[in-house]
Design a protein around this nucleic acid. Sequence first.
DNA 1: CATGAATGAGTCTTCATTCAT
DNA 2: AATGAATGAAGACTCATTCAT
Lengths: 217, 217, 217, 217
Amino acid sequence: MTLSAEKKPEKKRTATREARRQQLIEATIDSISIRGFSATTLSTVTKGANLSHGVVNFHFTNKETLYVETLGYLAQEHYDQWHSAVKNGGDDPVKQLTGLVGADFHPKICSQKKLAVWFAFWGQAKYRPNYLEVHNDYDDQRLANLERLCSEIAEDGGYDHVDPEATARRIEAVIDGLWLQLLLYPKMLNRETAKNDCFAYLSDVFPKHFPRLPITK
Amino acid sequence: MTLSAEKKPEKKRTATREARRQQLIEATIDSISIRGFSATTLSTVTKGANLSHGVVNFHFTNKETLYVETLGYLAQEHYDQWHSAVKNGGDDPVKQLTGLVGADFHPKICSQKKLAVWFAFWGQAKYRPNYLEVHNDYDDQRLANLERLCSEIAEDGGYDHVDPEATARRIEAVIDGLWLQLLLYPKMLNRETAKNDCFAYLSDVFPKHFPRLPITK
Amino acid sequence: MTLSAEKKPEKKRTATREARRQQLIEATIDSISIRGFSATTLSTVTKGANLSHGVVNFHFTNKETLYVETLGYLAQEHYDQWHSAVKNGGDDPVKQLTGLVGADFHPKICSQKKLAVWFAFWGQAKYRPNYLEVHNDYDDQRLANLERLCSEIAEDGGYDHVDPEATARRIEAVIDGLWLQLLLYPKMLNRETAKNDCFAYLSDVFPKHFPRLPITK
Amino acid sequence: MTLSAEKKPEKKRTATREARRQQLIEATIDSISIRGFSATTLSTVTKGANLSHGVVNFHFTNKETLYVETLGYLAQEHYDQWHSAVKNGGDDPVKQLTGLVGADFHPKICSQKKLAVWFAFWGQAKYRPNYLEVHNDYDDQRLANLERLCSEIAEDGGYDHVDPEATARRIEAVIDGLWLQLLLYPKMLNRETAKNDCFAYLSDVFPKHFPRLPITK
DNA sequence: CATGAATGAGTCTTCATTCAT
DNA sequence: AATGAATGAAGACTCATTCAT
């Protein structure tokens, strides 16, 4: 081995640009989840990332840009999760729907931490067109998928009364609503129960495809 | 009618304490709904109320106190709405449930303005125990009512598979989720459609009691 | 007796102008002594006097005027105390000096409360010509008296080295310095000890006229 | 000397942390001495230091912290002055006492500026335990030294009636009282006269060791 | 690339003063 | 005379952003 091999494996002072950005985004999520949106400052973010005050404005033009990219990261992560779950469902719409819905209750997605950040953003979304833009694309795709699956299952099961569009919207609504309850009352509801709740809803709509679970309580 | 009767009802300089407080609370709702939580300052509130900067600290000890009382006002208004609707339902649980759920889509409650404020508060709730406290009492009562109604209807209809507690939670979740969609995508969804969506869910669960509406779209 | 005799003896709503002013001045002294100059506001004063917020500006043009008159009251009280003590000393300069000095350690004058207020004013005096003006007249008279007495006693006792003016100044200095110590370290020093200290100094200067007290400690 | 040596010592934008803090402390002393405690604001301080508003909260957590450290600086400066003077007195208690007392009238310590600040602090001390704490240690040491010196001189001179503790207290009192007179009536009394006054007092107590100065006036 | 001192606009809060009642 | 609601100027403090090093 030559001397040139003596690279220090410690945290490099000069991390790659992308790594730094990622580090800051994660610190942002942490900070928002710990103390909320309005108490999160660039200081709390950089302190959490063990970096100096100034880096943020170095890697992101703006505090706002940092936020937008943080939301983008969250949305992408969510997308990846349900999208691959749908893929893994093969040709079976039931398996696909199970995957799509189940993804929303995956620990990686549906943690107290992430939920806190999601609702922090949603609480602001109306006034920040940027936030909505980030959402839109992802949401559209997800709703389209949901609708397609509802449609396929409805056809397959002869659920004549099912309006795929409205049903897709309703499924999404139940999930969001359960997320809110998980966020506000973590002691009353846990992720597993919420997930069952959600599937119980699918049983109500597509009873032949989603057999009812026994009442656990 | 004489001229002397034409007293101008000009803004009185000294209003009663309670009136001023109410005025400020409403200005707070306005400001939060217009520009969001983090862009709302005491200035935006007082300017909106056409009052001087100092009044807030005169009538409320704190900015935070103003917020808590604003949330309290919103929660009370909501409570009054569904509670009287339930009362008007007489002995019939279906009418009561219809009232309870319908109240959440009443224009007074489910306006863009109010929704914005609700989610603004929810986005902060985790970090402000005060906010949660305000909620808790109201939410508990509402859930208890919902559960009772599900229970009564289930018994009446022989819906053996219905778990009243989980069903109540699910109904609440659909509503909250629809609220979020109304907030984020007001162009895609209107209050009436959302309400129908919600009742369509009740049809799924209690088909005998909530006959299906025809698919409109 | 007629009906006109039914005067209520309760706190009259309409106290005489002078009584109200006095009441406010005393509340000012109380407030300054309790929480210091910079924490004293018109609110703390009026609250202490059980009066409404607005009265101050009614009876005094100014907060500053209130302060000046408060200082004036204190100075007058002090003056009355030593002046009458001097008078009571008859023709005897020693008795007069004893009275003059003793007055400064009279409980009415030398209380923690009053000391606090005196030093609060002195801490501000330099920047408020008004405060100094109030002082000047009183101080001049007092120094003149002190000087006269030193002069008389020096002559009587043949204390050739005594410079009446400087001695007077020094006596005044000891007293002020002891006051400061009483204020800052009330646990180390009490009024009686301070007074003895002061007379011990007189014994140093005029040994024949002020016989030494035994060392008590 | 070459031209290259003529570096301008222009105000550096980024000074060392300690230098900035010192600069701010001195600006605080200036401001308090110019306009008093209650008229001193962070603005007057920073303006005096030609710095921006925000620096104070950058270098000191608090306005109060800035004040405490300012008092600390003053106290330390005073301590250094008398302590080194005592040291310079060698083994001779008279020389030491002369140094200790003389230090209090040194231009660096006993300037109008510094006196103003001292009394500003004393006027507040009762309500700010922090201020007293800063004092205590320094004062205790000083009094202990004074007492020791009085004791040594008394023994040496056979001044049987001298109570070292009370005498020490009295000496301190005279000095503080003279400081007050210097502050309030700078036109009537100057530092030199005050100092002589003080030594005249020592002559009264320890006539053999502090020979009387001729009456100058 | 990175640091961290510095800036200054903006926020909450306090409070002397005014004034309708 | 007295009350107490209202005003608005001013102060302490925060923080996104800039920039010398």
